[in-house]
Amino acid sequence: MTVHFDLAALGMLVAVAETGGFTAASARLGRTQSAISVRIQDLESQLGHKLLERSRRGVTPTDAGERLIAHARRLLAVEREALADLAGDTPSGRLRIGIPDDYMDAYLRPLIARFAAEHPKVELEVRCDLSKRIEPALLAGEYDLAVVTQDPKKPMGEVLRREPMVWVAGRGHRPELQETLPLALFSEGCRARPRILAALSTAGKAHRLVFSCSHTSGVLSAVEAGFCVAAITESAIPPSLRRLGPAEDLPPLFELTVGLMMAPRPDLAARRFADALREEMSLLRLAA
């Protein structure tokens, strides 16, 4: 018997995964929690796979759920595009995006060319800045959409991804062998910076700041030159660097939570870009 997907149920599954629970998904979709739960249970029975794990910390997709969600986002995007095309509803105008530059290459670069080709009437304007400056700028109306490193004390936006921080050094160089660790950091205001310094202090690891920069390219250049180490996001590690860890007497690090923020009343272009970005994040998780 041929199995056909229930697109409404797939939309509910995606909403639960993106919001982290049935309560938030219910508010987003305007459906009762019980109705959403029943539709997803029916989907699980139809496919023969458990799609969600429920715990005290919330609801998370299983491996099968992650794979299905990646497909579901593409199917739902096609559905939206078809309905918009029939309605003559085509995105246009300027789309203003804010993002830290260490996420630019990892997240937006694979997406921008495809989005521009699919939506030729949309003008993309991307500005790179620190997350702590992007958040208030979006709330003030300066951006339509933003990708930020969430403040763990006051997270804002929808969770897109959890990004591990990793110690790195240049290939062919051993700065980690110095008695006092030479360190490169992003400039003051970077949300990872105080947590990196706290990890070193807690471990009792002697260190000294030898380089700081507001841009990823500057930090990577300093590390590649061989005179310092740095902690950067896993997705930003280029082939010119090598990972460091406990074997080099460096303390374990943490994960950053990457969030998606939208203007209060996002237009069609912003909604389409957000959908494409969520799909990109799903593909990255599957490739990991």
Score class of each variant (00 low, 15 high):
Met1Gln: 04
Thr2Pro: 10
His4Val: 11
Phe5Lys: 00
Leu7Ala: 01
Ala8Gly: 12
Ala15Phe: 00
Gly20Leu: 01
Phe22Lys: 04
Ala24Ile: 01
Ala24Trp: 01
Arg28Leu: 06
Gly30Ser: 10
Leu52Lys: 03
Leu52Gly: 03
Glu53Lys: 13
Arg54Met: 15
Arg54Gln: 15
Arg56Gln: 13
Arg57Tyr: 10
Thr62Leu: 12
Asp63His: 13
Glu66Pro: 02
Leu68Ala: 06
Ile69Pro: 05
Arg73Asp: 05
Arg73Met: 07
Arg74Ala: 15
Ala77Ile: 07
Ala77Pro: 01
Arg80Gly: 01
Arg80Phe: 00
Ala82Pro: 09
Ala82Lys: 11
Ala84Arg: 12
Asp85Leu: 11
Leu86Phe: 04
Ala87Glu: 15
Ala87Gly: 12
Gly93Gln: 03
Arg94Leu: 11
Arg94Ile: 08
Leu95Tyr: 02
Gly98Asn: 15
Ile99Ser: 09
Pro100Lys: 13
Asp101Gln: 08
Asp102Gly: 10
Asp105Trp: 06
Ala106Trp: 14
Leu111Cys: 09
Arg114Leu: 09
Ala116Val: 15
Ala116Tyr: 07
Glu118Ser: 12
His119Ile: 04
Pro120Gln: 12
Glu123Lys: 07
Leu124Arg: 07
Glu125Pro: 01
Val126Cys: 11
Cys128Ser: 14
Cys128Ile: 05
Leu130Gln: 15
Ile134Glu: 01
Glu135Pro: 04
Asp144Trp: 09
Leu145Thr: 05
Ala146Leu: 10
Val147Arg: 06
Thr149Asn: 15
Lys153Phe: 08
Lys154Pro: 08
Pro155Thr: 03
Gly157Phe: 03
Arg161Met: 14
Met165Asp: 09
Val166Met: 11
Val168Ser: 04
Ala169Cys: 13
Glu176Leu: 08
Gln178Ile: 08
Glu179Lys: 09
Pro182Thr: 04
Ser187Thr: 13
Glu188Pro: 03
Arg195Asn: 00
Ala198Asp: 06
Ala199Ser: 14
Leu200Ser: 04
Leu200Trp: 05
Thr202Ile: 10
Arg208Asp: 10
Val210Lys: 09
Phe211Ala: 14
Ser212His: 13
Thr216Phe: 10
Ser217Val: 11
Val223Phe: 03
Gly226Ser: 04
Phe227Ala: 05
Cys228Trp: 05
Ala230Gly: 03
Ala230Glu: 03
Ala231Trp: 11
Glu234Val: 06
Ser235Ile: 14
Pro238Ile: 05
Pro238Leu: 02
Pro239Val: 05
Arg243Ser: 04
Ala247Val: 06
Glu248Gly: 10
Asp249Leu: 12
Leu250Ser: 00
Pro251Ser: 14
Pro251Thr: 11
Pro252Gln: 07
Phe254Glu: 01
Phe254Lys: 05
Gly259Pro: 04
Gly259Asn: 11
Met261Phe: 00
Ala263Arg: 06
Ala269Gln: 05
Arg272Met: 00
Arg272Val: 03
Phe273Pro: 08
Phe273Glu: 07
Arg278Trp: 13
Leu286Asp: 07
Ala288Cys: 14
